[in-house]
Simulated scan of single mutants.
Amino acid sequence: MRHFIFFVFFFAVFAVPARAEAPANAVPVAAPEPEAAAAQAPEVPAAIAVLLEAGSTAQYVGEEAGYQAWLLIGPGQKQVSYIKLGENTVISGTMTDEKGENMSARQLLQAAADGKLENIAEITPETAKNQGLGDKFLAETAALRTLAYGPSTGKTLYVFMDPNCPYCHQFDKAVRDLITAGKSVQLLVIPAPILGPDSRDKAVRIYGAASPTAAWEKFMADGTLPDLPTDPAVKEDAEKTIAANLHVMSRWKLPLVPMIIWRGADGRVMMSYGTPKDMQELLHNAGIE
C-alpha cells in the first residue's frame, strides 16, 4: 500500500489551550504503571525532544506505515509530525493512502478513543491579549450551516462530524438518547468530511437533500443516504457549505472529529474531541443537569 505525506506546517491563531478545570465530582485518573506507559508511548525521539525544549508539548499518536506519529502543540502551532522508524528527522503534515483517505485523521481518532490524547481543553487562553478568541471561534462556528436536533431553548453543543467516523456516530446517538430522555440540550451537527472522498460524497448527499437535517438523522439511524443532487446549483451550494465547514476547522486547527464546542457553565468557550469517556462530566461542565 502506498502512503503519501504532504509537508504542510500549520500555525494556530491562538495560544496553546489550557486544560479545563475538572468538575468538582470528577474522579482523577490514576497514573499507569511504568510498564503500561512504556507500551503505549515510546521514548521521545531526540528530534521531538528539541521541540519540547522550545516550549512545545508532544503526545504520541501511534505508528503507521513505518512512521511514529506525534501531535505537537506549542506556541502558535498545532500539527501532526512524523519520524521514520530508525531515523531521527521530523516531518510534519498529513499522511494519506493511495485512495486519498486521510490516515493522519484516522490515527488521531483512534488515539483519542484509546485515551492517548488530552481531551477537554479551554479555547480561550488565560492571557489578556487573547481574551475574546473563544467568543470569536464560537461565533464563526455558529455562523455555519448546522443541522439542529433537540429543543432550541436547550444548552447548545456544536459538533463537527465526519459521516464515516464511528466515534461521531457514537456521540450522536449518546446525545440523541439524552434529548429523548428529556435533557435540555440542543445538538448542532456540522458535517465535516475530513476522512476522504467517500466522506465528502456522503456530506454532499446530505447537504443536497431537500431536508439536510432529516437526511442526517436517517443516515445516523440506518445508514440510508439520499441520491446525489442532480441540480448543479444545489450540488454547488452543498460543496460551498462543506468548504466553509472545513475552512473553520483548518483556520482554528481542529485536529479531529467529533469536535465538540460549547460555552461552559462559567462562561468560557470549551471544546472536547473524540467520544467523551464520561458524558456526565461533559454535561456538568456545560451546565446541563
Score class of each variant (00 low, 15 high):
Phe4His: 08
Phe6Gln: 00
Phe7His: 12
Phe9Asp: 12
Phe11Leu: 10
Phe11Lys: 02
Ala12Ile: 03
Phe14Cys: 00
Ala15Met: 14
Ala15Ser: 11
Ala15Leu: 14
Val16Ala: 13
Glu21Met: 08
Pro23Glu: 04
Pro23Thr: 06
Pro23Cys: 05
Pro23Ala: 00
Asn25Gly: 00
Val27Gln: 11
Val29Ile: 11
Val29Leu: 12
Ala31Met: 11
Glu33Arg: 01
Glu33Asp: 03
Pro34Arg: 00
Glu35Arg: 06
Ala36Cys: 03
Ala37Met: 04
Ala37His: 11
Ala38Arg: 07
Glu43Thr: 01
Val44Trp: 08
Val44Lys: 05
Pro45Tyr: 12
Ala47Asn: 06
Ala47Tyr: 07
Ala47Trp: 04
Ile48Asn: 01
Ile48Cys: 02
Glu53Tyr: 01
Ala54Gly: 11
Ser56Asp: 15
Ser56Asn: 08
Thr57Tyr: 10
Thr57Val: 11
Gly62Glu: 10
Glu63Asp: 13
Glu64Tyr: 07
Ala65His: 03
Ala65Val: 07
Gly66Gln: 07
Gly66Leu: 12
Ala69Cys: 13
Leu72Met: 01
Leu72Ser: 05
Gly74Asp: 04
Pro75Gln: 14
Gln77Glu: 14
Lys78Met: 11
Lys78Glu: 10
Gln79Arg: 11
Gln79Ala: 11
Val80Glu: 03
Ile83Gln: 14
Ile83Asp: 05
Leu85Thr: 14
Gly86Met: 02
Gly86Val: 05
Gly86Gln: 01
Glu87Gln: 06
Glu87Phe: 01
Thr89Arg: 12
Val90Pro: 12
Val90Ala: 09
Ile91Ser: 03
Ser92Arg: 08
Met95Ile: 15
Lys99Phe: 14
Gly100Lys: 09
Glu101Ile: 03
Glu101Met: 02
Glu101Arg: 13
Asn102Cys: 12
Met103Phe: 01
Ser104Asp: 12
Ser104Ala: 15
Arg106Glu: 06
Gln107Gly: 06
Gln107His: 07
Gln107Phe: 08
Gln107Ile: 14
Leu108Cys: 02
Gln110Pro: 03
Gln110Thr: 10
Ala112Tyr: 08
Ala113Gly: 00
Ala113Thr: 01
Ala113Met: 01
Gly115Ala: 03
Gly115Arg: 04
Lys116Asp: 04
Leu117Thr: 06
Leu117Tyr: 03
Glu118Val: 10
Asn119Cys: 04
Asn119Arg: 13
Ile120Asn: 08
Ile120Asp: 05
Ile120Arg: 15
Ile123Asn: 00
Pro125Arg: 05
Thr127Lys: 09
Ala128Gln: 12
Ala128Thr: 12
Ala128Asp: 12
Lys129Asp: 10
Gln131Ala: 13
Gly132Tyr: 13
Gly132Val: 09
Leu133Glu: 03
Gly134Cys: 03
Asp135Arg: 02
Lys136Thr: 15
Lys136Trp: 11
Leu138Tyr: 09
Glu140His: 07
Thr141Phe: 09
Thr141Met: 08
Thr141Val: 15
